[in-house]
Nucleic acid binder design. Structure first.
Lengths: 346, 346
DNA sequence: TTGGCCTCTGTAAACGTTTACAACGTTAAT
DNA sequence: ATTAACGTTGTAAACGTTTACAGAGGCCAA
């Protein structure tokens, strides 16, 4: 009776249809929708009714073309974004954006095939109100390229010169883990790294090195190169098994590596945590379901995304332009079954 | 020397700037970019050079407003999209779309707070060239609402009346798993379900019921209600443990439930697969890292997304409009350590 | 030479909004 | 009573493309 939504399939109603139907000008319709307080209640109601009657929806492209905002955010990610850690960060981003009427588009940066231009193209297409750079993309040397188009930019889990960023206290928290392991007797550590160019990896490794520098007489810190993936965790385990003097504590730069590491180690008869303690990083859901359950440094993944999106929206809204600094969220060390006292020597 | 990209920060060059710079009309520029074969090589080159010199990028909003396509796809998901299964389907979608110059936007359908209108609004905003509906959203009763706006629509992992869909042979594959378990002596099964309204769940349950109907004299099939999440898997385990006569085989409707189930069961001293065999569904990466490794029905998650996106693009391109049928991908049963011979009776 | 056809370009009209500006009516201040 | 100020509405000009249409040549056949 009321709506004519399902009627003719020709063409969606435009603002002029609404204006005619309500007996006002298009300007009034536009204002009634965007700034209701500027139009008299009587007219406003007429417009609202016309909108309902016709099932009118503003055309997003036209709005963007004429107005200032597209309500679209470009999220620059790596191809690995479907991994548990990133997926949840993205979820946080999307959640915050959606709550403010924004949507995100994923711009995949495939590090293997270098097609850098593509992203800059997208950014300059005038389609986006802002850009969120996820961990890893900033390290790809073209991080600063993202600044060039002059769009509001916030980076999450990594820093770009002169750009606001949202980070966690990675260095401090991995040192906290190391300290814990040191406290229960471990003296020989190995750091299972991410890619050497990675921002997070640098933060963690630098902090770890500094911490062990002061203890260099009593401790040893090795490093095995990985790339956050399970595969590289398994490879690291092979190297671990082959080493003459095995470390007793593994600090992994991702849970996925840690879990794969444990699987291979266990399969080779090495007991976790009896023979070797393993500590992960990220705190993905699964860390609590593997065997043994994984001690890990939990990053507030959802919050990371949410906060990044929030800061970006603030900048877009014109607030806090000055604030180009970093926001640091706190990680928490989750002690579980994969870590324990160091095995007795010899 | 060549490019002036980094020059003035005022306003991005428009098509008229390019036209002037190349000494041609805007129409020629437009054609040189969209349909190069229609313009003489000499001019085409001048245009291309001007484009490079000025760093011109077509304005997406204007293109959309005047032209027909936005190269934007709406992917309607549930809030659970960051779960491993969906994340990988999304990855497949995004991958196929990106390869064709399209991008996706996630439209979250929060089943808890009913804000159905929101999605239809989005669809009618003229922002999208097509819609992809992910499993679960189609079941939400408002599935058919998605058809209303008249946008090209493909559903993945579920069916909407009269809409092309991409599915897997869920029913057959879960029966295959049941058959395998039957073959190694199991006679008392329990199906750990998803939400009863879920399309996938219905397919699986119906197939399972039909299979056991023929065996009802020798077999028993129970059902415990879940919702795909680990939490519900754990809850199911509690009920399993409390039951007087415990089934010896669990067919779970998701890996995450199965893994949580195993954790709780093991913790209660029930041995997997000694006391109970567990089979998951989906084939997420983690199924191969839990303890014991999980026998599961692997769905081609990435392909599911890729194929859905592919079919949608075909429809948008005008090919295969007739083909409103289903595409069925095959699952594979992955036998691992969580299943084994049924325990000896009594 | 002339007419017709074909190929290549340019002109200008959309596309559906937002918004600066002007116009109008009303109220308050002088 | 005159003017200023204000609040509300309409007019019309953008925004940056694509594309129907027309026009300008060039070529070929008659």
């Amino acid at each position: 009776m009321a709506s004519v939504r399902g009627g003719s399939r020709d063409k969606p109603p435009s603002i002029v249809d609404v204006a005619q139907h309500a007996g006002v000008s298009t300007a009034t319709v536009s204002r009634a929708l965007a700034a209701p307080e500027q139009v008299r209640p009587a007219l406003r109601e007429r417009v609202e009714m016309a909108v309902r009657d016709l099932g009118y929806r503003p055309n997003a492209a036209a709005q963007r073309l004429r107005g200032r905002r597209s309500r679209l955010i470009l999220v620059v990610t790596l191809t690995r974004w479907s991994a548990p850690f990133f997926a949840e960060v993205l979820n946080g981003i999307d959640s915050e954006l959606a709550a403010n009427g924004y949507a995100m588009i994923l711009g995949n940066l495939d590090l293997d095939r270098r097609q850098d231009g593509h992203l800059v193209d997208m950014m300059q297409s005038g389609r986006f109100d802002g850009v969120l750079a996820l961990a890893g993309v900033a390290n790809a040397a073209n991080g600063h390229e993202l600044k060039e188009p002059g769009l509001p930019l916030v980076s999450i889990c990594s820093e770009i010169q002169g750009t606001p960023s949202v980070l966690t206290d990675e260095g401090e928290s991995i040192v906290e883990a190391a300290e814990h392991l040191f406290g229960i007797g471990h003296r020989h550590f190995v750091y299972l790294s991410g890619p050497a160019t990675n921002f997070s990896d640098r933060s963690r490794w630098d902090a770890l090195k500094a911490y062990f520098e002061a203890k260099k007489d009593e401790c040893r810190l090795d490093r095995i190169e990985g790339d956050f993936t399970p595969r590289s965790g398994a490879a690291a385990a092979e190297r671990f098994l082959a080493s003459l003097e095995r470390p007793t504590a593994v600090l992994s730069s991702s849970d996925e590596m840690a879990i794969a590491f444990m699987k291979v180690a266990k399969h080779a008869g090495v007991h976790v945590p009896g023979d070797v303690s393993v500590c992960g990083f990220d705190g993905i859901d699964f860390a609590d379901y593997c065997e043994p359950t994984l001690t890990t440094i939990r990053q507030p993944r959802f919050e990371l995304g949410r906060t990044g999106a929030y800061r970006l929206l603030q900048i877009i809204a014109g607030h806090s332009e000055v604030d180009a600094g970093r926001t640091v969220l706190r990680n928490t060390l989750c002690l579980r079954d994969s870590t324990g006292r160091a095995p007795r020597h010899g």
